[in-house]
Design a protein around this nucleic acid. Structure first.
Lengths: 196, 196
DNA sequence: CGGAACTCCCTATGTCCATAGGTAGTGGCG
DNA sequence: CGCCACTACCTATGGACATAGGGAGTTCCG
């Protein structure tokens, strides 16, 4: 059910098409939630049916059209209700940690390769998180700009600081992942002899 | 597909019944992978059909029986293959961070409540992780004891250190979650006035 | 000896999510 | 003008997972 509220969250900043939303879900918003378009379009239809959003068909080029979705009052209410709901804790499930607990079964080079991938992925991710965090502080983050326009100046700091808080957490996690992978590579070198 | 290999991983230490496995998956192994029994039993059947494990029906009490599963050579080979396979990176999806990025919409008390839950959950989790880590180092961890019996003494240190490495990573992550929740509670107090 | 807690095994159902397609229109570049 | 990248929207399929049950046997304790 989180996808629905992640979509509403984005639509509280401005109206968007399904395509716009799907771009966000594979770029910036992907930091907190990811979804492929094949999940987004059907969900948007369901949300419209449920009255949380409404669509307007706008022209696009000479023949094309696109559907722009905007959040309704019912949608805003539902979003607010969700945000106040008690948190459902979701157990983390990461194949990387599962595998790492059984690395004695692995070929040292394969193990190294996996930790290098992990390191590379999280390093890049960390980089993006840091950039996004900075763009929030600078108010250069595009979606944030749309969002802030809807609120009086004196609330801007509060809004930004919650978002920075979320990113601080993500950055801490990603930093831990990077540190862990490096430690693992050192461990393999120590236990298996540093070859490769 | 990770469930299958998580099951094989456990069965490399000793034969177990589906019930044994499901206990592990809601207790110690749950640290790296969780699954309900309703997912485990059907998967065991599929794995037996695929020849990765074989079952023996053993008596249990005067009338009862239970099915004990042991890993086959094909199962061991499949496990080894999986562990050497390149890592599939799984995007993290945590509703807590999604919500936290929009806390300006929340009632301060609801926000506090959520962060307190997060804090409590991860504090407890952290506690268990630390205890399990220690039991690995002490060799008092039951599954580890079974496992070590199958390997010569000089390999024990290597096996334990990989498991401790996995736990070190988990402990770091959990610590970051605890720190983040505390920081969030302080932030709410600062932004909303420290009531409640 | 009766009840409670536990062991043991399983099914059903629905949602979430990933993967892999498909179709039509647009805009720009050579 | 043809090609290509992109915008826009969608369906199908299968696996993963959560939630919610059911039913039969066992052990232990009062």
């Amino acid at each position: 059910m989180s996808l629905r509220y992640a979509l509403l969250a984005l639509l509280t900043s401005r109206p968007m098409t399904g395509y716009d939303l799907s771009k966000h879900f594979s770029q910036s918003v992907a930091h907190v939630w990811y979804a492929p378009d094949s999940q987004i379009y059907p969900e948007l239809n369901r949300m419209e049916r449920d009255g949380l959003i409404e669509s307007e068909t706008v022209p696009w080029g000479p023949k094309g059209t696109k559907k722009e979705y905007r959040i309704t009052d019912a949608g805003t209410a539902a979003f607010r209700e969700w945000i106040n709901e008690p948190l459902v804790i979701r157990r983390q499930r990461d194949p990387a940690y599962l595998k790492s607990a059984y690395l004695e079964w692995a070929d040292p080079d394969a193990a190294r390769d996996q930790l290098r991938r992990h390191l590379e992925y999280w390093s890049q991710h960390l980089q993006m998180l840091k950039e996004t965090r900075q763009s929030l502080i600078d108010h250069t983050h595009p979606t944030l700009q749309y969002r802030l326009k809807k609120f009086p100046e004196e609330e801007h700091d509060r809004i930004v600081r919650y978002k920075v808080f979320a990113y601080d957490g993500l950055i801490d996690s990603a930093t831990a992942e990077v540190r862990w992978a490096r430690k693992g590579l050192a461990l393999i070198d120590e236990l298996e002899g540093d070859s490769a």
